[in-house]
Write a protein that binds this DNA or RNA. Structure first.
Lengths: 213, 213, 213, 213
DNA sequence: TATGAATGAGTATTCATTCAT
DNA sequence: AATGAATGAATACTCATTCAT
């Protein structure tokens, strides 16, 4: 109950303000996109004054880097433990995709911003790359396992992992952020996830085990 | 039928200028990205004056829409004929991916611009969607065929087609445009293509026929 | 009369605009000081729009550097010829001071700006140093002559030259720009000049020859 | 006489804080210049919080005025007594210049600030003028004496005094603050002083007595 | 007396677009 | 058809100053 060392009431005013700004940024960017978001939009959404922004962040890019960093921490914390799925890799794929999908939805603004600025900002690109590393490694690991039993021949595991994470991320971009192929209709989460899971399992030549949503 | 004033054999000065501007735009955008490209960069690259731009295009967006339209025509014209691969769908996948990869490379600036602005510009997004339709239809057609023989169960063909084209496009974005996962090394065309082909064939559960590049 | 090669009518529009901006800057800076002069003050004084400024100058500092450069050219062009005063160095001092005083008045804004920003801008400081070189050299030359005949002993000619030009420049600053010691009354040009001339002649231990104002 | 509440022996906390701020300001301004010094730089240098500043000074200008006032008191307190040099005015000049030079060095930040802001701030200009009065009067007095014995003819004593103090102040500015003419080398104190003393003695047409430093 | 978080006015700069020539 | 000078709207960022604690 009580935290003797880090009293929850002792969250300083400044920490609170910083968190408010980050939250406001996430919301505004999710709605308007990173490029179209002005500093004043963020601070107004947080009910603060524009100068305050610069007490906490050097500029919009640094703020966004903070958002992405939080996103990365969140992804690490919530990744499924492969140890729980040792004899059912298809289920691990499903669990991974489901987890990612929801995490990405919670960080919709962050993902949107990554797609918007990775091409024009090398640091943001590097942040995105960092974010992807665990997912790629996991796919590559699975491919190596398959290759050890004679499947998934003729592909470089790392490159294929890079591509398969791309399958997921572009799916999210397409159906959830950009509404590229279905601009007028929502693609329901479960349908999106089901499609991605099935394709990834096929691509990895995994016979799906018993799966429950 | 015949145009007395504008002889088709003599490309008018105005047509030439317009073509010059489009070419210049393609080159500059491929290098600098659409967002970072200013009107003056384009006209200077074309050796013209800035005011001239507006005699040919309403603004940067309209110019880019023209580029994308040309890109779409090019894609249609060069798409492999499914009739040539009736009994080797795996080879059709390979031919399709190979063709697309090289077409996309020729239109690197266009693809870059699509990724940059689809999120902030609905018309550009719609243009991109148009571009994707044929590819998605082709993947969806293949999936339906597979489902008819009991394969590729449990996926919506159109949605899966949308995802699989995404696998390709994100691969191109990742390795060729953004250098997201391999910022310091080139991913060679043949390796990129091979990876995508293999994954797509697996995902579509196609036993690859004997194919030679 | 006629200039066959550089037709005066051919002063381009852009050259005219640049000259207008420089003139406007000189006037505004002379009135308000360099630090207090905003870009918009200059362009408005020139009856132009603010964006135009940046077609001609990178920023306020570069504009001011151009002003100072012009000032330097002007000083060089109008410096009295020592050859005309070989046997009356006192008269040369007088002619020099008179010339400088009027040149400085014509470039009041420039001098004001130098005093304002030399301390905070190394490039401006260097420009000012350049401007001073001829004057210092001339004083130092005179001191060396005097030392050759046993006068002006015990001073480093260059350092003394630096100091004596300072006597002049601070006088101009004091009485003409800052109104430091006489804030409420004008110090008439001839009185200022007379004081400076007399002091400089004394300091240089020159018996003044017959001088006419 | 005695202050029952504020015992002179115990410097009050508030007096100490004020003195800390003044000292910090002097150091920071000497280093960075008055214009480039922000309130926060001063209070941080003093290890205090920014809000505190306004409990002691209305704004930066008032603080600087306090500095200048202290400077002025210091100058008055340390001025050489003319009575000690009645029969060697050249030595008085030397003693005066030596004293001023060292006083100015101790108050380098103050002098720097005066040069920086006298042009843009009338009150600061007036403070500077006040500071100069004693020095000018002293030079003017000497000139009047000389004129009484037929020397230094043809100059207004007050104006000349104003100019001669300028010779000193610009020398200090040039060699010690701005490093205008010798940006890359130190001008040693004794050389600077010697040059100024010699020039001033010449200008005042004083045969220097036997003086040793 | 002291803190430091918060405010918001002020300004340089860019660049798409227009238009007189 | 072409030029390029001119326009002016839009926005990030700084920093003196205030005020609740």
């Amino acid at each position: 109950m009580n935290a003797p060392e880090t009293n929850p009431r002792q969250i300083s005013k400044s920490e609170r303000t910083r968190a408010d700004l980050l939250l406001a940024a996430r919301e505004v960017i999710s709605r308007d996109g990173l490029v179209n978001t002005r500093i004043v939009d963020i601070v107004q959404h947080a009910g603060r004054s524009s100068g305050l922004f610069y007490s906490y962040f050097k500029n919009k890019r640094e703020l966004f880097a903070s958002l992405v960093e939080e996103f990365g921490d969140n992804l690490s914390d919530t990744a499924p433990d492969p140890g729980d799925y040792t004899d059912d890799p298809a289920a691990l794929v499903r669990a991974t995709v489901q987890g990612l999908w929801h995490r990405y939805k919670e960080h919709r603004g962050d993902v949107k911003g990554l797609f918007e600025t990775a091409l024009t900002d090398d640091e943001i690109r590097a942040e995105w790359q960092k974010l992807r590393k665990a997912g790629i490694r996991s796919f590559a690991y699975r491919i190596r396992k398959q290759q050890a039993v004679g499947l998934c021949q003729g592909m470089d595991p790392d490159l294929a992992g890079s591509a398969l994470l791309g399958l997921f991320e572009f799916g999210f971009f397409n159906w959830e952020i950009c509404r590229l192929d279905y601009p007028d209709a929502d693609v329901p989460d479960d349908q999106a996830i089901e499609t991605l899971v099935t394709l990834l399992q096929s691509a990895l030549q995994l016979a799906p085990g018993r799966t429950e949503t």
